[in-house]
Amino acid sequence: MTGITIIGTGNMGSAIAGVAAKGGTPVQVVARDLDKAQALAAQVGGTAGVIGDALTGDVVVLAVPYPALADLARELGAQLEGKVVVDITNPVDFATFDSLAVPADGSAAAELAELLPASSVVKAFNTNFAATLATGELGGRPTTVVIAGDDDAKAALAAIVTAAGLAVADGGSLKRARELEAFGFLQLVLAVREQIGWTGGFAVHA
């Protein structure tokens, strides 16, 4: 069975680890703080490690803020070769909260793919709030995770998500990460402006 490694123990990392465990996927939690990694691993019945330990998952989720993405990719580049690497970031310019901190024709995921040419980078989870991943539902329907990337890489992540009872929407190639990041940014703005709750968000209905 395909395993998953979650790097990061924040709200999103915890929620994604919970989704994977719910679907029966073996989970490894990795962080710089071993105590935090062990605490989350215990919650989901997984294993724990620190940055630098062997990454056991075929799918690796980088559940870190955008500013930490590049340094982490460079640090772990060799270990991520041949793996599906999931970028969940929304590269918001938090100084102004009025734009994305990437070029207009680019994305955080595209930057990550350039840093990890031997990995299969996909964009996912950035349009989901942690609460809707944890509950598995939004508006009375299963939470939908939109995934952009290469077909085989998307399929590996989609299998983990759907095994937990969540839905998946295919967002196309990794080029669509730009649109997903803009969408995620809009959703964050609405939440900060209290137009929607952090337990809400946009739903995808077939």
Score class of each variant (00 low, 15 high):
42 A>W: 02
38 Q>M: 11
105 D>N: 15
65 P>D: 10
40 L>T: 05
43 Q>C: 07
24 G>E: 11
62 L>I: 06
3 G>F: 03
185 F>H: 13
104 A>S: 14
153 A>D: 06
2 T>I: 14
54 A>K: 14
12 M>L: 15
74 R>P: 00
162 T>P: 00
178 R>I: 09
102 V>G: 03
44 V>G: 03
48 A>R: 00
201 G>I: 04
11 N>Y: 11
9 T>P: 00
64 V>M: 05
189 V>C: 11
13 G>C: 12
104 A>I: 12
191 A>C: 11
53 D>G: 06
176 R>C: 08
7 I>P: 00
133 L>D: 05
10 G>C: 12
186 L>D: 11
89 T>W: 02
32 R>G: 15
56 T>D: 15
124 A>Y: 01
45 G>H: 10
66 Y>G: 01
22 K>S: 14
141 R>F: 13
193 R>M: 06
75 E>H: 12
172 G>S: 13
120 S>L: 05
70 A>P: 00
9 T>W: 02
122 V>R: 01
161 V>E: 01
143 T>N: 09
111 E>F: 01
87 D>R: 01
125 F>K: 02
83 K>F: 06
203 A>C: 12
187 Q>A: 09
108 A>N: 03
133 L>A: 11
27 V>K: 01
100 L>M: 08
90 N>C: 07
69 L>D: 04
203 A>W: 03
86 V>K: 00
131 A>F: 07
28 Q>W: 04
126 N>Y: 04
60 V>T: 05
165 G>Y: 02
132 T>S: 14
62 L>H: 03
131 A>V: 13
193 R>Q: 14
118 A>F: 05
158 A>N: 07
178 R>M: 10
14 S>L: 06
91 P>Y: 07
148 A>G: 12
56 T>K: 14
162 T>L: 03
95 A>W: 01
189 V>H: 03
143 T>W: 03
153 A>G: 07
114 E>N: 09
55 L>A: 12
11 N>S: 15
17 A>G: 14
22 K>F: 03
146 V>E: 02
90 N>V: 13
108 A>Y: 01
86 V>D: 03
124 A>C: 10
12 M>T: 13
174 L>I: 15
164 A>M: 05
30 V>G: 05
143 T>S: 13
142 P>Y: 09
80 L>E: 08
25 T>V: 13
2 T>H: 09
125 F>D: 06
41 A>P: 01
158 A>T: 07
140 G>D: 13
34 L>W: 02
66 Y>Q: 03
191 A>R: 06
151 D>I: 14
33 D>W: 02
69 L>Q: 10
91 P>L: 12
29 V>F: 04
82 G>Y: 04
172 G>I: 11
203 A>D: 13
3 G>K: 08
55 L>S: 09
